[in-house]
Design a protein around this nucleic acid. Sequence first.
DNA 1: ATCCTAACGCAACGTCCGTCGCATTTAGGG
DNA 2: CCCTAAATGCGACGGACGTTGCGTTAGGAT
Lengths: 192, 192
Amino acid sequence: MIAEVRASRPGGRTARVRSDVLAAVETELAEHGYDGLTIDAVAARSGVHRTTLYRRWKTVPGLLVDLLEAGADDSWEPADTGSLEGDLVAVNREIHAALTARPSITQAVIAASFRTTDAADALTRFWEDRYERTALVVSRAVARGEIPSGTDPHQLLLTATAPLYHQVVLLRQPMSREQADHHARIAAASVR
Amino acid sequence: MIAEVRASRPGGRTARVRSDVLAAVETELAEHGYDGLTIDAVAARSGVHRTTLYRRWKTVPGLLVDLLEAGADDSWEPADTGSLEGDLVAVNREIHAALTARPSITQAVIAASFRTTDAADALTRFWEDRYERTALVVSRAVARGEIPSGTDPHQLLLTATAPLYHQVVLLRQPMSREQADHHARIAAASVR
DNA sequence: ATCCTAACGCAACGTCCGTCGCATTTAGGG
DNA sequence: CCCTAAATGCGACGGACGTTGCGTTAGGAT
């Protein structure tokens, strides 16, 4: 995910404008939700001119993509708890926190991904990166002899994490952390 | 889900307009996808005036909600294969078919649910209805003595079906029917 | 310190989307 | 068969959204 921004003039005012705008996006998102997120509103709140927003970010989804990438931690890796079950529980708790945060940037980007292909691509890239890194918990479990070496990381992570996304994002119903833990344990047990 | 339309004049032209419009929505959806689905385009194709669409359906999501409800089968119930695993596999295959259909009305309504609360509510109601009916496979399994009586149907169905939705709708990656079957079996095994 | 130009501010414009008032059609009842 | 009002057709309007051309500011290099 290393961006390596090769912009010709990324410092000073430009950087200040960016952080002002992204901050405005976040507060605007918290107050009015994704539906109320407008270029004009962000411009008014941030004090940056409309035209600048249209030029640099094009669309509302574009703003959220930038917010996602700004918040992406390049050094992220899954917690090492010593067992597959513990690792999966930790992963699910992170996802649970991200989905129940207010505002949930993850949920906003998901909504945005249904509008522009750019946002959809950015989200896909983000998740691919995360799933790839999280595959480490599987290889560690294999190394410990907990599970067979042929285990498919993607399918296992899908079993663990998909119920959270489905329940909260699509079914739009609350999910407790205990339920999140529960699905992590089911996934861990499914490969023993 | 019984609609019981109490409109004061539901027959004749009104019904013809509705079916024309919904047909136009479906073909338009197939040709241009959800992004290209416009009130104007539907009006042009169906031969119904723009104003009529705005008056009866308000928005594009409104059109899709109506399409969803028009296609909802009030007598639907899950297949009875004689085993929990078989029943869950059958359920997952139905979902798999609905998500990979072209055009997938389910996917379109999901996209719409991120735009208006009406669409979100309609989708929630639809899924609640389906999950409620599908709980029958759990009670049948309990009656057969396959699984303990305290089993939570919702959690079980979440384990079985969530990976399909997550993989196809959010991760936007293909899922084979074999993988869909696989997740149904994991869910069945998780409650033994 | 000076210059160049990327980035931003500003105002005006054009387009698309949804709404409104009024005319016309037609479903359904008497 | 006729009458009423629901439903649709039609044109025009207003506002929100995105774009464009041009002037201004300031970052970064010389």
